[in-house]
């Protein structure tokens, strides 16, 4: 069963099936049973801990003594915590780079799809960094980006002055983002390639016959036709950006210089572990979760639409 076939079948499907089950009412009880394992697992291990964590955030819990209720004290404290505020700004900067996270793999996917020489090889190879753990990616870039590292050696050879990529507040966050982007773009690339494979090739041929320029073909025909998949990739990428940068931060910058690369995720780790303040960390977590909530709302809309519910 190839993807193209599915896509075609999907297109040919009539939207008359409606929202009701086709199996009559007796089937419902069994349907609940089918969905039960998933629901129980999700509620027990994700929703319940979330609510539990919400509870902690209103206490002075330090991981040892019995938590005492302190009202919104933690929330007031984080509102005045310059480190937390900096981490939010960093998060916004990170989110602002989303177009690059989507654009770069998209362009590469289109090129490979257009039959760039060596495309099949590129497709296989680009995914490699995504397989490696952030520990090794971090170790390598540590050596490339350090002040006496390879990048600066190259800069100097070309007559430029060296830049302290990870030690300068202006460049540290962007260096970190670039490394994470490099390490994960293969995943989005695969998603886009998959999407492109469902674009009917006669559409492209028709465009070519019209004498349309390569760029125009992409912009007006290819990209609109895979819009849903771009939205999907944006969702997956955003979640990844906000929840899986810890490994690289830890190895490459440890959150510094100052707070330049401290993201909320890293701060939660710091408060929870080293500072031993789970109550305070929970409050930060909840704020992060609420902020993601806004994002989540958009995402859920897109995803529900994709799932046709």
């Amino acid at each position: 069963m190839t993807s193209t076939m599915i896509a075609k079948e999907t297109e040919s499907r009539q939207p008359t099936a409606g929202r009701r089950s086709i199996f009559g009412n007796n089937a419902h009880r069994l349907a609940y049973l089918f969905v039960l394992p998933a629901l129980v697992l999700v509620i027990l291990f994700r929703i319940v801990p979330l609510i539990w964590g919400l509870g902690y955030s209103f206490t002075d819990y330090n991981g040892m003594s019995t938590p005492t209720f302190v009202g919104v004290q933690n929330y007031v404290a984080i509102a005045h915590d310059p480190v937390f505020l900096d981490s939010l700004i960093n998060m916004l900067i990170l989110l602002a780079t989303l177009p690059i996270w989507i654009g770069l793999p998209l362009v590469l996917a289109i090129l490979i799809h257009q039959g760039v020489p060596g495309g099949k090889l590129f497709r296989a190879v680009y995914f490699f960094p995504a397989v490696l753990s952030s520990v090794i990616v971090g170790a390598i870039f540590n050596m490339l980006l350090r002040y006496d590292g390879s990048f600066n050696a190259a800069l100097k050879a070309m007559g430029f002055s060296a830049i302290d990529w990870l030690g300068n507040s202006n460049t540290a966050l962007f260096s970190l983002i670039a490394v994470q982007l490099w390490a994960t773009f293969g995943m989005s690339l695969l998603i886009f390639l998959a999407g492109l494979s469902t674009v009917p090739s006669d559409m492209l041929e028709a465009a070519k016959l019209d004498g349309a320029k390569l760029m125009q073909t992409w912009w007006y025909i290819v990209i609109p036709s895979i819009r849903p998949i771009i939205e999907f990739a944006a969702v997956v990428t955003t979640i990844g950006m906000l929840t899986s940068m810890f490994g690289l931060i830890y190895v490459l910058t440890a959150g510094g210089p100052g707070t330049a690369t401290t993201l909320p995720e890293f701060l939660i780790w710091l408060e929870q572990g080293k500072m031993n303040r789970p109550g305070y960390a929970s409050a930060i977590s909840m704020v992060l979760f609420l902020m993601m909530g806004g994002l989540a709302w958009i995402q859920i809309r897109i995803m529900s639409k994709n799932a046709d519910l």
């Binding site: 540590n142 980006l145 350090r146 002040y147 006496d148 060296a162 302290d164 990529w165 990870l166 030690g167 300068n168 540290a172 910058t253 510094g256 210089p257």
Partner: peptide, 17 residues
């Protein structure tokens, strides 16, 4: 100090140099 202290890990970049 050698340049780039802020991007040099004390363990072990500093000691290795």
């Amino acid at each position: 100090y050698a340049d780039g202290a802020n991007s040099t890990a004390k363990f072990m970049d500093e000691y290795e140099s």
